[in-house]
Nucleic acid binder design. Structure first.
Lengths: 322, 322
DNA sequence: GTGACGTGTGTTGACGTCAACATGCATGAT
DNA sequence: ATCATGCATGTTGACGTCAACACACGTCAC
């Protein structure tokens, strides 16, 4: 904000009115080609850049998007955020990040208020942030939820968790495992629920063991993994994310069960260097981010027919763990 | 920005002038206690919240901080960002994230411009973003660099990389390893340089092997690790970060060299579940983030004596890999 | 009683932009 | 010649806030 060149100064130099400068700056409107060139030259000479605060005051738009996230410690969230930032930048929108202190509706309402105070044009709520979306007061700006359960009036986008899970199970069954165990994510997480559903639906009920439940962390994966390793009936496990799979692999190896097949979910950068390299389901975070941003921008522009629900395909990456 | 309650409306309800509402909203100024109560009641009744765009236009301050980062794929960066967001929120500042497309001065200058356009009051540049800080045009707003080399006029803050590295080497030497190898980070990275320096200075020159160099990724750690594993003289390795250590551990195990001692750096959440659990140097990201924010806020307030250089201690976390 | 001072509050204007309306001028139809 | 039309551009004012100044009133010293 230490800048100073205003439209008026450009106008003076170009010998036109401020309004004409505004017209040129906004591309639109009818401006004589000669005038436009003259104004653009003046802009360049003075290094003019429109003042966003003034523009925001006048138009109510800030070209800023909010991202609401529970934590960035999860690799998936960090990658999603990065994808959103990139996609936003490509559309000349900046991204304001807000972390949610906890899962209460109050925290969510406070976050909405803060985003609104800062004048975001819209916001994207990432997975962990969404379970409470419906509980909280609706934001006054458009919202796109990533990895949230379908809900009336909520524009949602998600990876095909269930499809990816089913592919993982199918891969394991094709390798001869008649019964595939599941190391699930925390209850209440949409992504965890969907992955569990995909696992469930991909194998006949009779053979299906009960899932065990972790909390996404590798530590929980290790703890649950020790239990699974102790059960001789376990020959194949589908873990709901790569970090839990890491802990699981350690537990299995320590128990001398290195032969148990494991498939993870996310395809984090390190998965290829796990011991053994992890077969996993890759999410296309970049695509997810781009889609989320374009859905949001459409909603901001008042486009009435934004789809309620978008699914982004996932892809099985076969390595050595299964 | 879909709001509407203005100071004028509050003023009308409270029977005062808009200026008095402004005074109450900003806490300061002399206002009669009775009047203040009346205005506050009116604010609460109408749900008044000051319009930041208008405030920004008038004052030039947005209460927004920028964070410049090369990528969020690195766990350390994501954690730093999270810490900065939390620290910013605690001071009623929002955080705008910008990722740098590449390392060129042009990209940096463009990022500065974009941050300035969005009116940030100041910015924090994270490690990978900083090598080019000096090359780019200076930003017009205060800047705090995290993990950047000391430079005139640059407020910098960093973890004690060298100290942590020295502690890692000391730990290995105390365990009887007379020669500690180093799997270094990429050339040109300040953090990598400092960790290498700490390693170098912690052991006598005669015994010190040449470092091998990775690029922070676990894949590079695996590739360099295979070379190290093939050298029978290698009994202990200090890896410049946990992700490379992960690849290194895999290479060692596959080569039947699971006995080689390894220490990493960062203490990522998963390090405890590596095989074996990784001894590593923990960085205090939260403290780093808080300090960076308070340094930046001090600079924004024009505090003349912000220290040029702040060092945040690191801590060795001993697990089973060494 | 006069003047100096302090306190609480109001008035005015400006930050930079853009929407709405107004103006001036050329063109072409009648 | 007259007038409607359309286009390029200018003028005015308002978005909501806050700084600077102005004012009214009370207190106190002399």
């Amino acid at each position: 904000m230490a800048r100073s060149v205003s439209a008026a100064e450009v106008a003076r130099l170009a010998g036109v009115s401020g309004q004409t400068v505004s017209r040129v700056a906004n591309g639109s409107a009818r401006v004589d080609p000669d005038t436009r060139v003259r104004v653009e030259a003046a802009m360049a000479e003075l290094g003019y850049r429109p003042n966003r605060a003034a523009r925001a005051l006048r138009t109510g738009r800030t070209r800023t998007l909010g991202v609401l996230v529970r934590t960035l410690a999860s690799v998936g969230n960090a990658r999603m955020l990065e994808a959103v930032v990139a996609a936003g930048a490509a559309q000349d929108h900046a991204v304001l990040v807000l972390t949610l202190a906890d899962d209460t509706p109050e925290a969510l309402a406070a976050a909405y208020r803060s985003l609104d105070d800062h004048g975001v044009d819209g916001a994207i709520a990432l997975n962990e942030a969404t379970p409470t979306v419906r509980a909280g007061a609706a934001p006054v700006f458009p919202l796109v939820a990533v990895d949230a359960p379908p809900a009336a009036g909520l524009t949602a986008i998600a990876s095909d968790h269930a499809g990816g899970a089913a592919a993982a199970v199918a891969h394991l069954r094709a390798a001869g495992h008649t019964s595939v165990h599941h190391l699930a994510g925390p209850a209440g997480s949409y992504a965890a629920d969907e992955r569990e559903r995909g696992w469930r639906e991909a194998q006949p009920g009779a053979r299906r063991p009960d899932p065990v439940r972790g909390d996404w962390t590798s530590t929980s994966g290790f703890a649950r993994g020790r239990e699974l390793a102790a059960d001789p009936a376990v020959t194949a496990v589908f873990a709901a994310n790569d970090q839990m799979a890491l802990g699981l692999l350690r537990a299995l190896r320590e128990a001398g069960r290195g032969d148990v097949a494991v498939v993870g979910f996310d395809d984090v950068a390190d998965a290829a260097e796990f011991q053994p390299p992890l077969t996993t389901v890759a999410q296309d975070f970049d695509l997810l981010g781009r889609r989320a941003v374009s859905l949001l921008l459409a909603a901001i522009q008042g486009d009435p027919d934004t789809p309620d629900r978008t699914l982004v395909p996932t892809r099985l990456v076969v390595r050595e763990s299964a």
